[in-house]
């Protein structure tokens, strides 16, 4: 085990959790990520028993989840396994596919609320996604203030937002500002 200490994407020793009105925003620094892309002639694998979702979808099972990122390409999530070499583990599950480590490629914010209303209100301020058509099990990449972000609707009251790790501060500023304005209004 290395003796180097990691930093969160926002540059702190510990990842941030903050409550703003009905919304809680938490940096999920424990989530491992790896991309999985089909090669020619390789069938669609079922890594860790997970059926890979179709375009615009997100599927989860037992701590592992995947969302579609392009034709024949997915991002696989593994809760709590960020310190491990998850890409190697995934490659073992999908030998004939191209796998690349993505854990520190993204900052991941989990945004939760007691019900759907604050989540929908936040979505309509941040991204040009039809909140109504973005039911649990949906995942899309879209633009947020000139940055690319992945948006995942994990549940009625649970959204995940992934952005380039290097832009974590800018993305957080946008989320926080929108959340504060919704609360004050």
């Amino acid at each position: 085990m290395t003796d180097l200490s990691p930093l969160s994407a926002l540059g702190d020793a510990l990842p941030l959790t903050i409550a703003i009105g009905p919304l809680t925003i938490r940096e999920n620094a424990g989530m491992a990520l790896a991309s999985l892309t089909l090669r020619q002639g390789s069938g669609e694998p079922q890594p860790f028993g997970l059926h890979l979702p179709g375009p615009g979808g997100w599927k989860a099972t037992d701590g592992i989840a995947a969302f579609w990122i392009g034709p024949g390409a997915w991002m696989v999530e593994a809760e709590g396994r960020a310190e491990s070499d998850f890409a190697a583990a995934l490659k073992a599950e999908a030998r004939h596919c191209s796998v690349s480590e993505q854990t520190d490629g993204c900052v991941m914010f989990e945004i939760t609320a007691a019900d759907a209303a604050p989540i929908r209100a936040l979505l309509e301020k941040l991204v040009n996604l039809d909140a109504q058509g973005f039911a649990p099990g949906s995942a899309r990449r879209t633009g947020l203030e000139h940055m690319s972000v992945f948006v995942i609707r994990r549940a009625e009251g649970h959204l995940a937002l992934l952005a380039m790790r290097s832009a974590a501060g800018s993305v957080f500023h946008a989320i926080e500002t929108a959340a504060r304005r919704l609360t004050a209004a």
Binding site: R39, S100, D104, C106, M164
Partner: peptide
């Protein structure tokens, strides 16, 4: 061609 691409600029310091 059988080739797959993905950006890894941010993932690796």
């Amino acid at each position: 061609l059988d080739v797959q691409l993905i950006s890894t600029t941010d993932a690796w310091a």
